[in-house]
Design a protein around this nucleic acid. Structure first.
Lengths: 95, 95
DNA sequence: ACATTTGGTTTATAAAATAAACTACTTTAC
DNA sequence: GTAAAGTAGTTTATTTTATAAACCAAATGT
């Protein structure tokens, strides 16, 4: 058997929560994600960046009237990585 | 809803693997755990210590003939914490 | 006009994980 | 019998991560 390696990008509470959320809603903005995950703006900003750099999510910045608006959506790659992570961690959860 | 907080002591690949293993076998020695989790001795030593300090496992050191032998077993508290972690993370896994 | 809020980013600090080095023996090979 | 290598770990140092604090720019409230 042996335990298989968990994707380190997803094995982080906040990033996992973000991915989980994005998969269920398809698209969400910064403020909404911040509220739902109960994270600080700084931490969220950093983690969104990592997910984006990995190609797991796509970030769009535009203006909503006069205010900036950051919108995120999960990519195919992100969904696949998430599905894989779920499979991987299941092995740890049911011994 | 909101995502509930994952026990940081268990949300670590190696510590989770150790707990998963110990729950299924009830008692295991250092070398066996090291093999099964494919970890380095140094990392394992540190993580076992943390689990022990938290009261999640019990560590016994004795001599097997002339060689030292470190044996670990999970405690009630450890089992409970693990069960709880499983419940907590399920929320993230099925969005 | 000045303070506060909104929507963030950047930088600094704290905590974790991992790797490298070391200890204390034991066994094997010469 | 002694040098080299292996076993079973621990301790310390380094790297990586996560979190928090500070900051920025524009908008809104008083």
């Amino acid at each position: 058997m042996g335990f298989n390696q968990l994707d380190p990008l997803l094995h982080s509470q906040l990033r996992l929560a973000v991915m989980s959320l994005l998969i269920s809603v398809a698209t969400a903005d910064f403020v909404y994600i911040k509220e739902q995950t109960e994270s600080t703006a700084g931490n969220l900003s950093v983690q969104l960046d990592k997910l984006s750099t990995a190609g797991y999510i796509e970030i769009t910045k535009q203006f909503e009237g006069k205010k900036p608006k950051t919108t995120c959506k999960v990519t195919k790659k992100g969904v696949d990585a998430f599905d894989n992570y779920v499979k991987e961690i299941q092995q740890y959860l049911k011994p």
